[in-house]
């Protein structure tokens, strides 16, 4: 079953001004099925970030359709998109984006608060346990290491049991050992059934995925196993 199905997806910036119009995503087709671990790679300006924003429902496509669990979210309004982001997408950012005044537990509870969950505390504690940080629940972000912060961010992404975990350079701000541990954690979550999509320019990260999608000029240039896709990169 496909979790994500993108059909002829287009995102054009400044479409009304032909001189400076940018086709960031250009008639892109991509299907990702349940439980996959996909790395999205490509050179700067290839449309990675735009694609991530479209998949994450942070932005609407100009044309084309985006089926998320068989619903065309490309036509959704602001409030419906907010609900989709809350329930079905878990974001992990390069710079963690934790609220500085909130403890780890409160940061993890945040998505549950927005969905009026009846028991946010217990669920948030369970999520923190899954990332191995239940002993840090009442610490502020400033009292945590970089790796721990990213674990809190991952717990926050998991807490609403989303359809996809969407990570944007999740190891970008970490040293290589900690980055590797975070990647291990994400892959472990994937092995338990979470669909994982990582947008990265770090080929080391991409090689650990089961599938790699390489973009160029807003289209899929190559799609397949890491060896097949990244091997093709090396010959360039």
């Amino acid at each position: 079953m496909n979790v994500i199905e993108l059909v002829n997806l287009e995102k054009v910036y400044h479409e009304d001004m032909p001189d400076i119009a940018v086709h960031a995503v250009n008639k892109l087709n991509l299907a990702i099925s349940h439980g996959e671990a996909v790395g999205i790679v490509g050179p700067s300006g290839c449309g990675k970030s735009t694609l991530m924003q479209l998949i994450g429902c942070l932005d609407r496509p100009t044309r084309g359709s985006y089926l998320l669990e068989d619903q065309d979210v490309a036509r959704f309004g602001d409030n419906e998109l907010a609900k989709v982001r809350n329930k079905r997408i878990g974001f992990v950012f390069q710079t963690f984006n934790l609220l500085a005044r909130y403890t780890a537990l409160e940061n993890v509870m945040l998505p549950l608060k927005y969905s009026n969950d009846p028991d946010p505390r217990a669920k948030a504690l369970t999520a923190l346990e899954r990332v191995g940080l239940s002993n840090r629940a009442h610490h502020l972000p400033t009292e945590l290491s970089g790796g721990q912060k990213q674990r809190v961010a991952i717990a926050r992404a998991l807490v609403n049991t989303p359809a996809i975990l969407l990570a944007d350079e999740p190891t970008g701000a970490l040293d290589s050992r900690t980055g590797s541990e975070i990647l291990d954690l994400l892959l472990e979550l994937n092995s338990h059934g979470s669909t994982l999509i990582i947008v990265t320019h770090d080929l080391g990260v991409a090689r650990r995925m089961k599938r790699v999608v390489k973009l160029r000029d807003g289209r899929v240039e190559a799609d397949g196993s890491p060896e097949a896709v990244l091997g093709a990169v090396d010959t360039h």
Partner: peptide, 15 residues
């Protein structure tokens, strides 16, 4: 950034 994060995790504009 805080507003962006809140929106990313599901805060509706009116909230």
């Amino acid at each position: 950034r805080e507003i962006g994060l809140r929106k990313a995790v599901g805060a509706r504009p009116e909230v």
